[in-house]
Simulated assay, not measured.
Amino acid sequence: MVFITRYLDLFFTFVSLYNSSFKIIFIMLNMCTLYLILTKYKETYDKDGDKFRIEFLIFLCVTLAMAFNAEFTILELLWTFSIYLEAVAIIPQIYMAYKSGTFDKDVSFYVLMLYSYRSLYIVNWIYRYEVETFYDPIVIVSGFVQVCVYLIYLSLYWCKSEENGSKDTVKKEALYPLHI
């Protein structure tokens, strides 16, 4: 949902062949990932354990997009929705990992890479503001929210793995004091 709603401008605005090509490639790769999740890896999904109500996040992002946007047009609303949704998109996965007690080093490394990626965007925003005097408050606030979500997960993992005595996997029992 994040990238399909973000890149709908493909059909209405041409920036460059490079830009259009990579948007199409990115959407196709995301669709391939979704296909694999729904087919090849569907047995790894714990439907009974997945109790997170994602519709609340989607509703929140739609509401924010309607209330806080740069321009009240369909494409702008969809783009703004995608920015808000990207900031919170990992929350269901973090919730599922927390509830199942599967905080392992691979998941934490993945979240650390996402954190690093978004942190580099923050550096880019500072640079663009200094050089071009450009800033987008929607993107900046959403980016900081996203970084905070990643930091919460990483802090939970590292604190609890220290208590557990292992950084490979955090046992569910070590998480009980932080029951959600």
Rank of each mutant, 00 (worst) to 15 (best):
S161V: 00
V107A: 06
V170E: 06
T33H: 06
D136Q: 06
I91D: 08
Y41L: 08
E71F: 00
V170T: 07
L114G: 07
L78C: 14
Y121L: 07
T13G: 11
Y115G: 13
E76F: 02
S108K: 00
Y117K: 12
K105D: 14
Y18H: 10
D168V: 12
V141R: 03
E132P: 03
V141E: 11
Y35W: 14
V107H: 03
T44E: 14
F59R: 14
V111H: 00
Y110F: 03
R118H: 11
I54L: 02
I37R: 11
S82K: 01
S142Q: 10
I83C: 01
S100H: 09
K40S: 08
S82Q: 06
Y150L: 15
Y110A: 12
L151Q: 13
M66H: 13
T13S: 11
D9E: 11
F103T: 07
F14A: 10
D106M: 14
S119G: 03
V111Q: 01
T13K: 13
S16H: 03
D168P: 04
Y176H: 08
G143V: 04
D104G: 03
I90R: 01
M28D: 15
F52K: 07
E43S: 14
N69H: 08
A97W: 01
L8V: 15
F56M: 12
D46T: 10
P92Q: 03
V62Q: 04
L178G: 04
D106K: 10
F3M: 15
Y18P: 05
F3E: 15
Y153S: 13
Y98P: 12
E43Q: 13
Q93A: 05
K23A: 13
E86D: 08
L60M: 14
L114I: 02
F109P: 05
I180Q: 07
